[in-house]
């Protein structure tokens, strides 16, 4: 028996969410008395792979093949399924990010496993397998029972604590069968934006709404983000009107985020917006309307004009950091 974790890498490096996954898998494995297997696809140095051992991986399988340098869903799903079968895994774990959402359903079908996505806690029971997940875009939770022997899970980011353990992990090259017919999609071009903090990684997110009053008025918000090392986001009207690119839209139909700190600046807080950000640990709201619904979701609030408050806020934060 084992819990197998697919650990994605970004240019050969792991992220906080990779270690969250291993920590989560470790807790399930300890409950069931099984092993944690980490599966890495792509080129990652052994030093980096060994880090996974610090969080509880017993074994690290690595699959290196040029054809797998970009994500091709069918080929990846095939490799992950082969690894899960080889390791007799009952649970296959992914992150609830774009890659996890692309692969988990395919692997679940191949393994005839029940899939539960966006889980937020350690399973409350292993037999029957029962686990809590988010539903209705952060507005509720559901306890889901899996009827099949195996299960496939995606873990919601920032919902479990990372725990370090003793490291006895071994690395094993896994020679998976890779079939040419799985490559009917091809990546022709990769365009990466460099030098920006990614919304999905950010500990702090600074977000602007219609109260920013126009696309040319974003500089004070960008200054605050730069001071904090934060990612920039926006509300739906702002992206719909083309003030900001749609990649920055957070909310029900945009990105669902869970940073430690979220600044809602000139955002009234429509229910769809709150769905996308209410998993943030702390929310700060600035709005001219004291009755704006954002204040019901926020931890700290200021009634006032963002353009008056933003430069002062950035200045005060700088002062605090310099002190």
């Amino acid at each position: 028996m084992s819990v197998i974790v697919f650990v994605e890498n970004w240019d050969g490096k792991f992220k906080k969410l990779s270690f969250e996954l291993i920590s989560y898998a470790r807790q399930i494995a300890d409950k069931s008395g099984s092993r944690v297997i980490a599966l890495s696809i792509g080129t990652v140095e052994d030093d980096e792979l060994h880090k996974l051992g610090n969080y509880g991986a017993d074994k690290i399988l690595k699959v290196e093949d040029e054809r797998l340098n970009s994500l091709i869903n069918k080929a990846y799903a095939s490799v992950i399924t082969q690894a899960a079968e080889k390791e007799s895994s009952d649970t296959v774990l992914f992150s609830h990010n774009a890659t996890g959402k692309a692969l988990a359903p395919r692997v679940a079908v191949r393994l005839k496993a029940g899939a539960v996505t966006g889980v937020t806690e350690i399973p409350s029971s292993l037999d029957p397998f029962e686990v809590k997940k988010k539903v209705f875009t952060n507005k509720a939770f559901a306890n889901v029972r899996v009827r099949s022997v195996k299960n496939v899970l995606t873990l919601f980011q920032n919902s479990v604590e990372i725990k370090e353990t003793e490291n006895n992990a071994e690395i094993e090259a896994f020679d998976a069968e890779i079939r040419d017919q799985d490559f009917k999609t091809r990546v022709l071009e990769v365009n990466k934006i460099t030098g920006k903090v990614l919304l999905t990684d950010a500990e702090i997110v600074v977000s602007g709404g219609r109260g920013m009053k126009g696309p040319e008025k974003w500089q004070p918000l960008e200054d605050l983000a730069a001071e904090l090392g934060a990612a920039i986001a926006c509300s739906r009207p702002v992206s719909d009107e083309g003030w900001r690119p749609h990649e920055e839209h957070v909310g029900q139909t945009g990105k669902i985020i869970a940073p430690n700190l979220y600044f809602a600046l000139g955002i009234s807080g429509a229910i769809q917006h709150l769905g996308g950000v209410s998993s943030s640990k702390y929310i700060v709201a600035v709005n001219t309307d004291k009755d704006a619904p954002i204040f019901e979701a926020a931890d700290y609030g200021i009634v006032g004009d963002v353009h008056k408050i933003l430069p002062e806020l950035t200045g005060e934060i700088k002062k605090m950091k310099d002190a």
Binding site: A115, F141, A142, N143, V144
Partner: peptide, 21 residues
């Protein structure tokens, strides 16, 4: 292959602390 056993709403949020502008 899965079933919803029970739903729950998130715990109510504490009141927002207001700070003077």
């Amino acid at each position: 292959l899965t079933e919803f056993v029970r739903f729950e709403l998130p715990p109510p949020k504490a009141a927002c602390k207001m700070v003077d502008e």
